[in-house]
């Protein structure tokens, strides 16, 4: 690990405009600092900034940036009204990691692309302009949607996929004031620029994640992975779906493991609305989702896997 200056913040304002790297749970940042993939000169520990409360926000919920993943998943309001969020958090990492991991740190976790996580390879995300060894290399975990020649990595997290389906917002304090970004717009596609994972600017701090009023219906987070626990997603589907008189009355969806961000596609929900559930309908939804899908070789299996996972989740959500 490279040497750095350490400081502790007692309020969020100290992070605004600071050029230090923010340290929350440390489970991703310290991991990458040990590998010297991350080499910040200054680190600001934000664990004592008091951003660790979950509060009612109208009919919604405001979850402080430093709330631990465990505390969020165990919160009675989250479990009752936004169970999708609890399910997605609990599907990730391990109990020990979730105790330390925070809401904002989880959102900002970096890709698990193995070329990014070492320093002797070419990686545009780690070293802009150096190239991308994943294109011709081990790319089993990589993107099938929205990738670019510059970077084919996936965003690896689970929680953000649920937050995208739930239409959450990210509250950010910046030198020019407070702003809110829709979770769906928070992470970005590489579009030729691989090193920026999301729209956060230097000197900004995430202060909270906000959830709108609960949506009625079945909520399902389905994660497919190499082993049944303590592994990242190959493909995941987050779904909120409500039936009315045998037809799909409302549907909100997001997908993990497919792209550089939690993937959403409004055409998929539109195709489902007002329809009677059937295998043919689920296939049509998958056709729309995967119409632009492109395998990289080792990850070609993700295309049929995403199709089957979507169909299975839709089946479960629409059955009597």
């Amino acid at each position: 690990m490279r040497a750095f200056d350490y400081a502790r913040a007692t309020e969020a304002a100290e992070a605004v405009g600071s050029d230090a790297r923010l340290l929350a749970g440390g489970t991703n940042l310290l991991d990458l600092m040990k590998l010297e993939v991350e080499t910040p000169a200054r680190v600001l520990d934000i664990n004592r900034t008091g951003l660790d409360r979950i509060e009612a926000d109208g009919e919604g919920l405001r979850i402080g940036a430093l709330v631990s993943n465990s505390a969020c998943a165990a919160d009675a309001r989250v479990r009752a009204d936004w169970p999708l969020l609890a399910q997605a958090i609990l599907a990730g990492a391990s109990p020990q990691l979730r105790n330390k991991a925070t809401m904002a740190g989880n959102l900002c976790q970096r890709t698990r692309c193995q070329y990014f996580m070492r320093t002797d390879t070419r990686c545009n995300k780690r070293e802009p302009g150096s190239g991308c060894d994943a294109l011709e290399g081990v790319n089993r975990n990589h993107a099938i949607l929205g990738a670019s020649e510059a970077c084919i990595a996936t965003y690896p997290g689970d929680m953000a996929v649920a937050l995208a389906a739930l239409d959450a917002w990210v509250e950010i304090d910046s030198p020019s004031g407070r702003r809110s970004v829709a979770l769906r717009e928070f992470h970005r596609l590489p579009n030729g620029i691989a090193h920026r994972d999301n729209v956060l600017e230097p000197g900004e701090i995430i202060t909270a994640i906000t959830l709108p009023a609960p949506v009625r219906g079945r909520q399902i987070y389905r994660k497919v992975r190499e082993r049944s626990s303590y592994a990242f997603a190959l493909v995941s589907v987050a779904l909120v779906l409500r039936m009315d008189a045998g037809r799909i009355a409302a549907a909100q969806l997001a997908f993990g493991g497919l792209a550089h961000k939690p993937w959403t596609d409004s055409r998929v929900a539109e195709a489902l609305l007002g329809q009677k559930p059937s295998p043919a309908l689920f296939d049509k939804a998958a056709d729309l989702l995967l119409s632009g899908a492109q395998g990289q070789g080792e990850n070609d299996f993700k295309i049929p896997l995403a199709r089957r996972t979507l169909a299975a989740v839709l089946h479960d959500a629409t059955k009597e």
Binding site: Y6, R8, L23, G26, D31, N47, N99, K100
Partner: peptide, 20 residues
């Protein structure tokens, strides 16, 4: 794994200085 204020965490991914 150790307990910090009664909660289990991975002590390898935490800095001593964070635990004042």
């Amino acid at each position: 794994t150790v307990l910090v204020n009664g909660q289990r965490i991975n002590s390898c991914l935490s800095l001593a200085v964070m635990h004042d």
